[in-house]
Amino acid sequence: MIKAENLTKSYGRHLAVDNISFSIEKGEVIGFLGPNGAGKSTTMNMMCGCLAPSEGRITINGIDIMDEPEETRKYVGYLPEQPPLYFEMTVTEYLKFVGELKRVPKKQIKEDIDRIVNLVKIADVKDRLIRNLSKGYKQRVGIAQALMGNPPILVLDEPSVGLDPKQIIEIRNLINELKKDHTLIISSHILPEISAVCDRVLIINKGNIVASDTPENLSKRLTGSNKVYLRIKGEESAVRDALSSVAGAEHISVSPCQEEEALDVTVEAEGDEDIREKVFFALSGGKLPLLQMRPMEMSLEDIFLNLTTVEENA
């Protein structure tokens, strides 16, 4: 549905996006993940026709967006990093204006507004001035704006930035709702959000795509070894002795913990072997009470840090 080929954008000498290519199928939910200044917003701006690529091209349904900007922009609803709101308008006035601007037929504008205010849950504030709304509501009005005219593609740049945890969950539910009839492209540096809603993650760092996979695969690919977290009551030397007797256990790291007389320990196993049982018996043999044990999966956060730091070392 959307295809980017050798996309490059430079601001003067600064290379914001460096020769990236990707393609997004209909109905997919794609997450752009990356630190600030990685080129996420620039890429999104190019996809929406707000910026022209320095090199390369973007096609939507096979049409180059630079060839037919007016036609292709109809397919895309865009929520920029800062929602483009007119503070002096009420929510309904604003949505009506956006509808007219997007050349939505008059009858459909009214239907769209009624449908969208209920979908994004802003019906109770629809006659209030946007200036007086809270940040969470403003963000939702921004999403409502992108939904006007019911475009098949939605591009949301950091939809949950600056929101409190409750609002983040609400936005996440909303995105899950939108998934049903839209192709979604979401950027974020709030990682759980991406892994919760996206089918595929593109990790972008310094204008390059570092990785592209499903959140689960990325996690699997990068974990590689089997890590176990333990909380053990006892002396450090005794713990180390007991654990080193376990076959396949490597990289034992011990650190003090909040609980008295206890230690936080991580053990890494070679390959895919599950060492949890062996660890249990080794510790019980040494009369070391085991307070907690859980397998450590690399979170998206770890993957992200791992990938971006690897990139830096290279």
């Binding site: 701006n45 929406c48 026709g49 707000c50 900007p69 007016e70 036609e71 922009r73 109809k74 895309v76 865009y78 920029p80 800062q82 483009p84 709101l85 007119y86 503070f87 956006v98 601007l101 997007k102 050349r103 704006q145």
Partner: peptide, 14 residues
């Protein structure tokens, strides 16, 4: 100033 320009720039009108 209000960054609403992006709305106008991505609207399907010249």
């Amino acid at each position: 100033r209000q960054k609403t320009e992006q709305l106008l720039m991505t609207a399907p009108i010249p």
